[in-house]
Design a protein around this nucleic acid. Structure first.
Length: 262
DNA sequence: ATGCCATCCACCGGATGA
C-alpha cells in the first residue's frame, strides 16, 4: 500500500500536474497540502474521473489540506486540531482508509505552520500548533493501529536534511525549538520513514523557486511521513518522486511516499 | 538587508510562503 504526501502549492494551478502524477504513480492514498482554495472550489469531479475519492478542508487563498484515496472514499475521523478555538487555519485532516488486504489504516494530512519570521507571533503559533499535533498523535498512538501522519511539517529535522546549514540557520524551519518539538513526537514512538531509511540524509523534498534552487539542487527535507509502530513494522520502502519537481509548472515540493506491506 | 519566484485574490500590487 502506497501512501504519499504532496504539498501542491495551489490545486487550481497544479491540477494537470497532480492528475498526471496520480495516473503515473498510482498511490493508494495522497495527502495534499496547500490546496489554496475554498471548499466550493475543490475539483472533486476531476479526481473521481480517474478513480479517486476525496475529502478536503479548504480555506480562501491559503493553506488547505485534502486526502485522496484510490477506488474508495476516505472515512473522515478528524478535521482541525483541538486546543485553540480561535485558530481558523485549515491545516489538519484525518481519515480511515481500507488497505488492499482489508485492514484499516489511519492517515492524516498535515500542513504545519511555517513560523517565519522568528522570533515572533508566527513562530509562537507554530510551536503551539506542534504541541497540539503531538497531543493528537498521542491519541492515535494509543489506539494501537497502523497510522501514517503525512505532510509538510515545515521542520528540517537534522543538519544533513538541508543543502546549507548556514543559509538556513536563522530560519524557523531549523530552530532548536522546532526540531525539539518534532523530536518529541518521534520520541513518543513515531518513525520518520525517510529519516531512518536514509540516515546519511541529503534527500530533499523541497526546492525554492527562487535563486535557482532546483537547478542547483539546493533543497531540504521538510515533508515527512511518521509511522505508528504497527505501520513501521511493515515499512517496505519509501522515497521522493524527485523527477516531478523538474517538470513544467511544478510545485516547489516533490511528492514523498512510503510503501507498507499490510 | 533585500530580492530572487510563484500563487492567490482582485484589480495589477500586496500578502504569503520557506
Amino acid at each position: 500500500m502506497k501512501i504519499a504526501s504532496f504539498n501542491i502549492n495551489g490545486i487550481k494551478a497544479r491540477l494537470p500536474r497532480l492528475l498526471e502524477w496520480l495516473e503515473e504513480t498510482k498511490p493508494d492514498v495522497a495527502c495534499l497540502q496547500e490546496i489554496k482554495t475554498q471548499d466550493e472550489g475543490f475539483p472533486a469531479a476531476e479526481f473521481e474521473k480517474i478513480g479517486y475519492g476525496a475529502i478536503w478542508h479548504g480555506q480562501k487563498s491559503f493553506n488547505g489540506v485534502a486526502i485522496l484515496t484510490r477506488d474508495q472514499q476516505p472515512e473522515e475521523t478528524k478535521r482541525g486540531l483541538d486546543g485553540e478555538p480561535e485558530d481558523e487555519h485549515s491545516r489538519y485532516l484525518e481519515a480511515n482508509v481500507t488497505a488492499p488486504g482489508g485492514g484499516t489504516v489511519r492517515v492524516a494530512s498535515i500542513y504545519l505552520p511555517n513560523g517565519n519570521p522568528q522570533p515572533g507571533p508566527k513562530f509562537d503559533f507554530k510551536l503551539r500548533w506542534m504541541k497540539r499535533l503531538r497531543n493528537r498523535a498521542s491519541e492515535i498512538w494509543r489506539e494501537e493501529i497502523p497510522a501514517v501522519l503525512a505532510g509538510d511539517y515545515n521542520v528540517i529535522p537534522r543538519d544533513n536534511d538541508v543543502f546549507s546549514v548556514k543559509a538556513m540557520e536563522n530560519d524557523a524551519l531549523m530552530q532548536p525549538e522546532s526540531r525539539q518539538a518534532y523530536q518529541r513526537i518521534l520520541h513518543d514512538g513515531w518513525t520518520d520513514a525517510l529519516g531512518v531509511t536514509y540516515p546519511a540524509g541529503k534527500i530533499w523534498t523541497y526546492w525554492d523557486y527562487r535563486s535557482g534552487g532546483w537547478q542547483r539542487d539546493q533543497g531540504f527535507r521538510i515533508d515527512h511521513l511518521l509511522l505508528s509502530p504497527l505501520a513501521a513494522d511493515h515499512l517496505r520502502s519509501c522515497g521522493v518522486d524527485k523527477e516531478h519537481r523538474g517538470r513544467e509548472k511544478a510545485s516547489d515540493h516533490a511528492p514523498t511516499w512510503v510503501e507498507l506491506n499490510l
